[in-house]
Amino acid sequence: MLTTSSDVQGTIAVDLLGRELGWRVEADREALLHAAAAVVNGEPVVIIEEACGREWWASERPLPANLHPVASWIHAGEAAAYLWVTRKRIDPELRRRLGRRLVVYRPNVLP
């Protein structure tokens, strides 16, 4: 269901992001659904590329306008959802504060 909506709109599938790159997803179903809805509904979604480059966007099309990649959390700003690619520990208080707006991806390979 999540993937089909994103395919139709030509955007990312939150539940599959980074899978072909060996990333593990840390999020419960509620967080995945919330982030997927934000993506397909055109709400602002920040992708924190802390432990990756742009390899997650395999398309030759430009990024959808609602996806905002940044290099670190300090540049994230306000968003409906945060997709954070990191190897670092996320502060428990920040994780609690973001709640279902946060989906974390853990790359398996060192840079």
Rank of each mutant, 00 (worst) to 15 (best):
S72K: 14
E50S: 10
Q9N: 09
A79T: 14
V85K: 06
E78M: 07
R29Q: 12
T86N: 00
R97I: 04
A76S: 15
L2Y: 05
R106Y: 02
C52K: 09
N41K: 12
E26M: 08
D91W: 03
N66M: 10
A71P: 07
S6C: 00
A80C: 13
P107L: 02
V46P: 06
A79F: 07
A35Q: 13
A76Y: 02
R96M: 15
Y82I: 11
P69E: 14
E60A: 13
V40T: 14
R106S: 01
E60G: 14
A79W: 06
R61H: 03
E20P: 14
E50C: 00
V70R: 15
R29K: 07
A81E: 06
E49M: 04
Y82N: 09
L63D: 04
V103N: 12
P69T: 07
W73A: 14
V39A: 06
H34V: 00
V70L: 08
A27K: 02
V103T: 09
E20F: 10
E30P: 00
A58M: 11
A71Q: 11
L102Y: 03
D7E: 04
N108T: 02
L94Y: 13
R96I: 04
P62Y: 03
R54S: 15
R87D: 04
Y82P: 14
L98A: 12
V14C: 07
L16T: 06
L102E: 04
G77W: 13
V39P: 05
I47H: 15
A36W: 03
L98C: 09
L102V: 03
A37Q: 15
S59Y: 11
L110V: 10
V104Q: 10
R54G: 07
